[in-house]
């Protein structure tokens, strides 16, 4: 088990290098002059040159990359907009996004797994069809539009819930539901298909032949196996939630990293954009690592052979 985890960590290193390199390159290979982009069209040539020198943009690319990584690690990477370190701006926003994402994943897992299990155990019944269609609707819903609709109904018309911002529990309900909708659908579909797969297995017949109740056969023998692939999906969905937060936070003016990313892109605050991209990617990669480990805990075949 220990070796298994160590190996996974070792495999992360090239990905981490790749991630920082990509974030760096994406914004440095842009056509045009990055210093000019930062300074804006109205700035004078002297101002642009000064900026170029100040941010080391006149140095060779490898040196710039080294400076970028150093800035990330030491937290010295400066925001262009706010005259403060990028990390100091990002981390509080990241916390807000994590609160939102965690609330969403709870909604999505509870609803999705329940719907998927019911769908599989009531195959071809109206429950199955309803769950299937609702899941596909959930997956197909444009987050931003769904958010606007719910906001129109619950905030503007009924005035039950606030239309934006962060603070009380009531503030998080709409964004969490909106953000979790697609993941609910995906988790439900995944759980359904892995559950159907498991219910066909011989060991399910064995369990029934022992005289176990249908309930125990499903909840103990089938679900435990069916959740193994679902766990992976939940990990991937966590990434989708971090990304979806870009849109949800914009709709509900939730002060998270997604909204920060968009405003920084629009303001051409490149260091913040880069740092935010790297932070989100890192988080996602580590969540997937955690999922791999959880996967091994759930599946003894991996636990004892890895």
């Amino acid at each position: 088990m220990g070796r298994f985890i160590l190996r996974r960590f070792a495999m992360l290193i090239p990905v981490l290098v790749g991630v920082s390199l990509t974030a760096f390159l994406i914004l440095h290979l842009a056509p045009g002059d990055p210093a000019r982009l930062m300074a804006g069209v109205e700035a004078s040539q002297e101002d642009v040159d000064m900026l170029r020198h100040k941010f080391g943009l006149d140095r060779p690319l490898p040196v710039q990359y080294a400076m970028f990584v150093k800035g990330l690690v030491t937290g010295e990477l400066m925001s262009l907009r706010f005259e403060s370190p990028a990390m100091e701006i990002i981390l509080p926003k990241l916390k807000n996004t994590l609160i939102l994402a965690c609330a969403s994943i709870v909604v999505a897992v509870v609803l999705g797994v329940t719907a998927g299990v019911l769908s599989a155990t009531h195959r071809k019944s109206w429950i199955d069809y309803a769950a299937t269609i609702l899941s596909l609707f959930g997956i197909s819903m444009p987050v931003f539009w769904w958010g606007l609709l719910l906001m129109l109904l619950f905030s503007v018309k009924l005035m039950w819930l606030p239309s934006g911002g962060m603070g009380t529990f009531r503030h998080i309900i709409l964004p969490a539901v909106v953000l979790g909708t697609a993941s609910t659908g995906i988790i439900a579909r995944m759980t359904r298909s892995s559950m159907l797969d498991v219910l066909r297995q011989d060991y399910i017949t064995t369990a029934a032949a022992k005289g176990l109740t249908r309930r125990l056969v499903v909840n103990r023998h089938a679900l435990r196996n069916a959740l193994i692939p679902t766990v992976t999906v939940v990990g991937l969905q966590f990434g989708q939630l971090l990304a979806g937060a870009v849109l949800t936070e914009t709709v509900f003016t939730w002060p998270g990293i997604g909204r920060l990313l968009v405003t920084s892109i629009l303001a051409r605050d490149l260091p913040v954009v880069q740092a935010a991209l790297v932070i989100i990617a890192l988080l996602f990669v580590f969540v997937n690592l955690a999922v791999d480990i959880l996967y091994a805990v759930l599946d003894p075949r991996i636990r004892y052979n890895g």
């Binding site: 297995q201 011989d202 060991y203 017949t205 064995t206 369990a207 023998h221 435990r224 196996n225 193994i228 759930l298 599946d299 003894p300 075949r301």
Partner: peptide, 8 residues
């Protein structure tokens, strides 16, 4: 091979 539940 397939008649026993792998996770118990």
């Amino acid at each position: 091979m397939s008649s026993l539940n792998p996770v118990f």
